[in-house]
């Protein structure tokens, strides 16, 4: 017997005898090793938060892992970020096409499904590799605030709150314990900040946290300034006591 994959991880389009697509699983592993990204629904909008670790001399004012897709839709990514850019470009074009065809803003689910379809294609064609990135697609549309997760296999699932990237298992447990459906967007932002602290080595400061909101009343994606994140951080540290090893 050859080592584990026995050559079945060479071509993405070939199932192993026990029914697995190794390349797709490896892509999902890439996501698992990425830095954390969190998305939370609240009663007055959605929150996206990510951890970014810039080098000391890196200009830190441009967010690398949260992307605007349309006025009302944002994407947070974990995994191999350049792949996310390609998917986001695609989503932007798709959103505007949808607007031209139907004369209304595209729905979050429609974008999520489109991107997931794209991922699925890249598990079935020879000569391509799967995307090494998972996306949290969120926004406010005709159905209210909405959150979807896509992964390299082409799965897309709606969530109330979700975390991807390294430490996401722990954060998911934390979210399952602390998430409440009737949270305000401020509470959700504090919870998101706490989630980042939980997964990160940095247990204080907000230089490594980026955040965006899409509020229900404005239906616009807005970047949250450092000052405001600091407020959420102080609430988070007080409320959730995440500096202890197993909160």
């Amino acid at each position: 017997m050859l080592p584990a994959a026995a050559g079945y991880d060479r071509a993405i389009t070939v199932f192993s005898p026990d029914g697995r697509l190794y390349q797709v699983e490896y892509a999902i592993e890439t996501v698992r090793r990425g830095t954390i990204a969190v998305g939370i629904r609240s009663k007055d909008g959605v929150v996206l938060a990510v951890e970014e670790k810039p080098r000391k001399l890196q200009s830190n004012d441009v967010t690398q892992k949260i992307f605007q897709v349309d006025d009302h839709i944002g994407i947070a990514a974990a995994g191999y970020i350049p792949d996310a850019r390609s998917q986001v470009d695609n989503a932007r074009f798709f959103s505007q096409s949808n607007r031209l065809i139907y004369d209304e803003p595209v729905e979050v689910e429609t974008v999520a499904k489109h991107l997931a379809d794209q991922c699925q294609q890249f598990t079935q064609y020879a000569g391509v590799r799967p995307f090494g990135v998972a996306l949290i697609i969120s926004g406010v549309d005709q159905h209210g605030s909405t959150l979807y997760l896509t992964d390299p296999s082409g799965t897309y699932i709606p969530y109330e709150a979700v975390a991807i990237g390294s430490g996401s298992d722990q954060v998911t447990d934390f979210l399952e314990k602390n998430y409440k459906p009737d949270m305000s967007i401020e509470d959700a932002s504090a919870l998101a900040t706490a989630s980042i602290y939980l997964a990160s080595d940095e247990k204080q400061g907000v230089k490594h946290i980026k955040m965006s909101h899409v509020k229900k009343d404005t239906k616009k994606l807005t970047k949250i300034q450092e000052k405001e994140i600091e407020k959420y951080a102080s609430v988070a540290l007080q409320k959730y006591k995440i500096d202890k090893p197993d909160a």
Binding site: I101, D103, E104, E107, T110, Q142
Partner: peptide
């Protein structure tokens, strides 16, 4: 098909636009 995709009623402006296309 559109209604199955979006799981809600299609507004008149949207239908008019589809017809226009």
């Amino acid at each position: 098909i559109r209604k199955l995709n979006i799981k809600r009623e299609i507004p008149p402006n949207s239908l008019a636009k589809m017809m226009s296309s």
